[in-house]
């Protein structure tokens, strides 16, 4: 980001100009830079600084005491060793993987099915598709509160509904063996609109002529999907999946609102652990180390995304 500030911009697009004209362009250049400078500075302070600060904090013994004494001794990689050897780390990694994979798989499959469904224009289809966005636009803590009411063991509507069929009340959010599944289910609900919307716009971009030509060759229904829709949609699919992974890895609000990482750490992820280390235990060094591990994992997916993007641009 800092490169924004000292990159000398040249507006020398035009053919060689007389000196007086060039002098005028210089003032123009400054004006142009002033257009981006405030946003550049804000991004450097609000994004660049935290990323760097997080990196240094992860190498320091940065705890509540630091705020009183002002001292944060350098400890090398000790924070990383501490958090990785903690027994919760393995579970948090596993939960993060299960949460991400489970969410993405179902969000994507259901999202694609709904996108294909809404592609068949019918009365009210645009309105219904628009209203479908609501779960995605709601504040996450509102969704968490609502789902907690629905999943409540004794009084929740889901257990009351299942009770009609003779199912015993299930402790959706209080049973360690089920809580992760319930949390994934809620996150799927939140993510479906995002997947549907992006995939729908991808479907819209496929030219009708392809289907017309395909139908002459007998490609209809499943065959049309297999040989026309899916190949054409591939670039959009990879964008949707990778963005989904990157966004899902850092999910924090929903889990905090639903279970707080419990019961018995059954829904702890890297993100919730990082929060807990920093803001519950006030071990900022540990929290920073965990969140840096999270960044590295996200970046690995981001690199795949950018590579894909470049390929798509080349084609």
């Amino acid at each position: 980001m800092s490169s924004l500030t000292h990159a000398p911009a040249r507006a020398g697009q035009a053919s060689p100009a007389p000196p007086r004209r060039r002098r005028k362009l210089r003032g123009d250049d400054i004006a142009k830079i002033l257009f981006v400078l405030p946003a550049g500075i804000a991004m450097a302070l609000l994004f660049g600084y935290p990323v760097v600060k997080n990196l240094t904090m992860s190498l320091q013994d940065y705890s509540l005491q630091t705020f009183f004494t002002g001292e944060a001794p350098w400890v090398g990689l000790a924070n990383y060793v501490d958090v990785v050897t903690d027994p919760i780390f393995g579970q948090a990694m596993l939960n993060t993987g299960l949460f991400t994979a489970g969410s993405i798989l179902f969000q994507f499959v259901i999202g694609l099915a709904l996108a294909l469904f809404f592609k068949q224009h019918f009365p009210l289809s645009a309105t219904l598709r628009g209203l479908l966005l609501l779960p995605w636009l709601l504040p996450l803590i509102v969704s968490s509160a609502t789902w907690r009411a629905i999943l409540e063991q004794d009084s929740g509507i889901l257990n009351r509904f299942l009770g009609v069929f003779g199912v015993e009340p299930i402790g959706w959010l209080v049973s360690p063996s089920i809580a992760l599944i319930a949390v994934i289910g809620v996150n799927i609900w939140i993510g479906i609109p995002f997947n549907t919307t992006l995939l729908y716009s991808g479907l819209q971009a496929i030219p009708d002529e392809l289907y017309e030509a395909g139908s002459l060759d007998g490609a209809t229904h499943w065959k049309a999907f297999r040989y026309i829709t899916w190949p054409s949609l591939r670039p959009v699919v990879s964008v949707v999946l990778i963005l989904g992974v990157v966004y899902t890895l850092k999910v924090l609000d929903i889990i905090l609102g639903l279970t707080g990482g419990g019961p018995a750490n059954a829904t702890q992820t890297l993100a919730t652990q990082s929060y807990q280390r920093s803001f519950v235990d006030f071990e900022f060094g540990h929290g920073a180390a965990l969140s840096n591990i999270l960044i590295v994992i996200s970046m690995a997916f981001a690199v795949v995304y950018l590579r894909r993007g470049r390929h798509a641009a080349d084609e």
């Binding site: 990323v51 600060k53 803001f279």
Partner: peptide, 18 residues
């Protein structure tokens, strides 16, 4: 684009001390 991928908890960690 990359900034969109930074978890909010990273920002919170650093901004708290700042």
């Amino acid at each position: 684009l990359v900034s969109q991928m930074i978890p909010g908890i990273v920002i919170a960690n650093a901004l708290y001390s700042a």
